[in-house]
Design a protein around this nucleic acid. Structure first.
Lengths: 241, 241
DNA sequence: CTTGGGGGATCGTTGAACGACTGCCTAGGT
DNA sequence: ACCTAGGCAGTCGTTCAACGATCCCCCAAG
């Protein structure tokens, strides 16, 4: 009720409110719809190749066609939907070229971020610890979807160490598209199991401040992951031409 | 008139047509509007901070408000416009933090691309030769806007050597935003002059196949460019608070 | 088997409308 | 004088209905 007697003290308090407002009020309908669809796509509920009918979604979501189309634009630019003129939007079907392209960008971003790390405050590794723990926990529970999620978060937090907004955004787009790829092959355990321990190893190297070795390890890590994913991809397209 | 007697020969011919169609028919109104505005923003015709009124632009461009808004979304996601809820879209005013963030991403992308080059077919350096020549020519004519354009194209073609669609797109966004920064400081000659010869030097290293040295040179090149730009930026904000 | 139309469904774009929000200006209180 | 609340334009956010354009599928003719 009473206003804070010290205006100085109010500063961080106000910041907390501002943070809350940002996720609360500061979202247009289009962004909320986009968020909803984003989850559906990332979680794999909408299989690649699905067409998202404007008419149907307008009906279900109770938003206007224009608003829905704005949400489509949002997701299209994140690579989570593709827009074909006069045909509509689809959940993209990534092919092998997309996979290697994705990993090409992923290698340059992640490896370079790690390589350039220096004077790393251990506190900033906290989120990485949590993600690794979450991955190990999920593995124990045989919940390989959760393990995959934890893995994605680990890598997102890894590049966040660079402290660059634009690098974060690029990585976010990248990892979201990658999840799409995971869903097209759909073999969660084989895909994610090896990396719960390798993430742990990577983190240990970072804790020890061995950024060069970590970068090198990450390089082969990503190489392995790519070949494995490409392999699984070929298997799948072999038995499903 | 007569169809080609050899269907085999038609293959590359068809590809050329497909290419043409892609730029001709394959653009929605929103994309054409976006392209138009993109040029205005990149060329600096719209100074940073300008608000783009929906009402006015609808009037001038003879498109509907919804279409215009789709174009806005397109450019917003390229970083060329910022969208403030209930306030409209503006040409962004980059601050110093944006500059270092931009260069942070730029270093990881460009340097890593160069570092990973190997077995480079000299033919693929052709566009780089053209850009360097264009830069030198523009410098002779004291046309520093053209020199800046040539420089941007040089760097775009440089990352294109990686042969990755997503890296190209990331770089394109990055360089477009950077042009925005150039326009806020507006000292074309001092900004671009040093780099027409440095681009030449970089290209020579690539021709010689010395990718490691090229990567190292690019590292200090970008570092110099950043400090110079930040310096110019501080000058400007000093005399224009 | 290829080529050349319908037909139906869906998209692209428009224009108008109404509620909601922002920034500014003014009036009123201290 | 200074600060605060309230009103007032000006825009934006969102919705709705409609029309033309385009694509896909299917079927008939060559």
């Amino acid at each position: 009720m009473a206003p804070p007697p010290e205006p100085r003290q109010g500063a961080d308090w106000l910041r907390a409110v501002a943070q809350e407002v940002r996720t609360f009020d500061r979202s247009s309908t289009a962004e909320r719809v986009a968020e909803l669809l984003r989850h559906r796509v990332i979680e794999g509920d909408l299989p690649p190749g699905t067409r998202l009918s404007e008419e149907q979604l307008v009906e279900v979501l109770h938003v206007s066609r224009n608003t829905l189309r704005e949400a489509f634009r949002l997701l299209t630019h994140e690579g989570l939907l593709v827009h074909l003129l006069h045909r509509g939007v689809f959940v993209p079907e990534l092919d092998e070229d997309d996979l290697v392209d994705l990993y090409r960008l992923r290698r340059t971003i992640e490896c370079d971020v790690v390589r350039r790390l220096e004077r790393l405050d251990p506190v900033r590794l906290r989120p990485l610890h949590d993600d690794v723990a979450a991955g190990e926990d999920a593995a124990r529970r045989d919940d390989w979807d959760a393990a995959g999620t934890a893995n994605m978060r680990f890598h997102q937090h890894l590049v966040a160490l660079a402290g660059s907004r634009r690098i974060d955004e690029t990585a976010a787009r990248l990892l979201a598209e990658l999840r799409l790829a995971f869903h097209t092959v759909a073999a969660p355990q084989r895909l994610h199991e090896p990396y719960v321990s390798r993430n742990r190893g990577l983190l240990d190297l970072l804790v020890a401040g061995e950024t060069d070795r970590a970068a090198k390890e990450l390089e082969v890590y990503l190489h392995d992951s790519e070949t494995q994913l490409v392999g699984a991809f070929r298997e799948r397209s072999g038995r499903n031409p």
